[in-house]
Design a protein around this nucleic acid. Structure first.
Lengths: 237, 237
DNA sequence: CGCCAGTTTGACCAAGATCAACGCAAGTGG
DNA sequence: CCACTTGCGTTGATCTTGGTCAAACTGGCG
């Protein structure tokens, strides 16, 4: 089970409850990231391809233009954990360390912009405002990761899955329907569950009329009852 | 984020694999944090006292001078999760948001320095180097939190407890003996376990001669076999 | 001295993991 | 274009880790 690899990356995750506060860097704010575009290189990856591997030099970071990226961590015996999913607009691969502590892989057809750390750093040095925004985004990301810590440490399977659905709907700005690019396996490794449990929880949600699924391999999710979903993970204050 | 949960503190946690890299801000590096000391206010808290509460204005952040602080998140039904422990030298309460998403409480006798966000921000604005260090520390913290995410999502109880012991020994710079300031309950809520499970795992470690405990309420832990402990949580690459 | 908070241990229970089988959709090669 | 293969999703049966409940114990402190 769980063969793969992994590591840490960074990206802007989401916040279920107060969705108003979002990371500054996330979307296409004119005067911030656009500045970066000049120094970025555009790269394309196919489904399953590795963007960087565990142990690689961490001399650059990325921004997703198209597709979905997963940041994975592997334990020796094959247990895998997905630290995050990065969607278009999200950054990943920011690191304070010299080498990658995990891998980044393309979940589907992916296009990213790659920024060399050096170039980005010099840009930041001469633009304090940019620095501030980057810093703020990192703080947001930290907040999201800490939320995940709560989810993984103290929430039930049903709450995790409900929470996950709310997260992706929020992050993709979807209201009714959404295509999940990742497999059940990926979702399980993201939520600290097995794929069977994820499957069963989704089935339960369908049975209760909270969601419906369609499309090849049930990847298209239709949100039937958002309130019910929110209630499910609102043990949270 | 997500109602009621915690907030972000920051501190330098640890990384089992490459323990050499540590946060810059953590210890008393002359030309960095010392600059902050001028604008900080010293505060004292008694065991169990709240330093800030969930929902409070997040207009300041703190640095621990003495004692241990826990950052807690509560779910409605009482489930608690501890996002981190902050030891002397660690910062906590840094946040990108306006209000606290969790509470900070003194575990024992605590002394902190409190920095108003405004004052700190203006210091940072005129000192890019300071900004860079603060940013780097936040990236380190992010890496640590992501490590915790792996621990909570994919590690067994025994690995979590072993990992926890290594973490505190590392962070407190202890070689042989260490006083754990927090209760079994705190440890459990930090590791996503119950206090009984923590107790049993510690008992198992004592039985196997990996550690020994003494002192009031077994708070003093003596490390008998560091390698065995490391082996226990080295499914991790 | 006796209470109280925290720790330890045991017996039992359940959420979720594991194991197994099957079905369906997407590729793939002829 | 179709047979075959392979990967993914779903579901059921059973098992295990860690949780729950309960009781005893221990040291600190008023």
């Amino acid at each position: 089970m769980y063969i793969g690899s992994d590591n840490y990356a960074s990206d802007t995750t989401f916040k279920p409850t107060d969705s108003s506060e979002t990371a500054v860097l996330n979307s296409n704010q004119p005067d911030t990231l656009v500045t970066f575009e000049q120094i970025g290189a555009r790269l394309r990856f196919k489904r399953g391809q590795m963007i960087y591997a565990d142990g690689d030099m961490a001399d650059s970071w990325y921004r997703v233009v198209l597709g979905t990226v997963r940041i994975c961590n592997l334990l020796r015996d094959g247990r895998r954990h997905i630290a995050q999913f990065s969607f278009p607009g999200d950054c990943f691969g920011l690191s304070a360390f010299a080498t990658r502590a995990g891998s980044a892989e393309a979940i589907d057809e992916v296009v990213v912009t790659r920024y060399s750390k050096r170039d980005a750093d010099s840009l930041i040095d001469e633009n304090p405002r940019l620095a501030r925004e980057l810093y703020n985004q990192t703080l947001c990301e930290l907040a999201n990761t800490q939320w995940r810590t709560l989810l993984l440490g103290r929430m039930y399977a049903s709450e995790r899955v409900a929470s996950f659905l709310i997260e992706v709907f929020n992050r993709r700005d979807a209201r009714h329907t959404l295509d999940l690019p990742m497999t059940r396996y990926d979702i399980a490794d993201y939520l600290g569950l097995t794929l069977e449990t994820v499957c069963r929880e989704l089935t339960a949600l369908k049975r209760d009329g909270v969601i419906a699924s369609s499309g090849g391999r049930s990847k298209r999710i239709e949100l039937r009852n958002q309130d019910a979903l929110k209630t499910l993970c609102e043990g949270v204050r």
